[in-house]
Nucleic acid binder design. Structure first.
Lengths: 111, 111
DNA sequence: ACATTACGTAAGATATTCTTACATTTGTAA
DNA sequence: TTACAAATGTAAGAATATCTTACGTAATGT
């Protein structure tokens, strides 16, 4: 699989975000501790971007990492008979723990 | 800079999310088109994770990429054994139903 | 036009990742 | 416990990607 075939085009968003931030590739390279050609390669989609680099870019450009990833909010339907069965399983968990669990899961949940 | 020094520990979240999804490394590897040792290396922090891989993991585990990036505040003690136990129960529920279930319970929680 | 800054790219050196194989751990049934 | 199976960890050479420096072109401003 070539790099160009990758579905999510983070490179375009990185380039767009950089310009919105009013920064040059050289400035960004210095901030992130990269070489300038590396930034060029990234924005042209010839070089991958790691998780930590995404976070660094997001901070430098003041955008969310989620936006850089191209995450799309998806809605979903809530009517399914199997839910009630699953809910009965959940009911076995102690209320105190359930509260914590819900907070954990909701923080992980797709928006 | 070694890989372990990277501030955002996406590897730990990937491992946690996989277990919550009830998947083995082998299953995940097949879904994402990776070799199983690669998943192992990723979860141990010895291999980087690219932007597209983050999106793929997020979809497979049904968590947000933002959470995998560590953007969402982790206010919870995830090493609490009681929560791990509860999470194991939740892992038995089919991923498709999990999100629906969470919505149901969230709506019940508000009173 | 000239100077300066920004950006793209080439090429060899370096580093990472891939792939296969084997080892270790963990879970489970006899 | 022992034995077996499944899951995970890891080693090592091959394949690939990235780094680093250098040079070239395009854009911008004076």
């Amino acid at each position: 699989m070539t790099l160009k075939d990758q579905k999510s085009d983070i490179s375009a968003r990185l380039k767009e975000a950089r310009k919105l931030a009013g920064l040059s590739q050289g400035q960004v390279a210095k901030i992130l501790g990269l070489h300038r050609p590396t930034v060029s390669e990234i924005e042209s989609g010839r070089r991958r971007v790691s998780a930590d680099e995404i976070n660094s870019f997001a901070e430098a450009y003041e955008v969310s990492g989620a936006w850089l990833l191209g995450e799309i909010n998806e809605t979903l339907e809530t009517n399914d008979p199997r839910i009630q069965l699953a809910a009965r399983e959940l009911a076995k968990i102690k209320p105190d723990d359930l509260e914590k669990l819900l907070r954990l899961i909701s923080s992980m949940r797709d928006t």
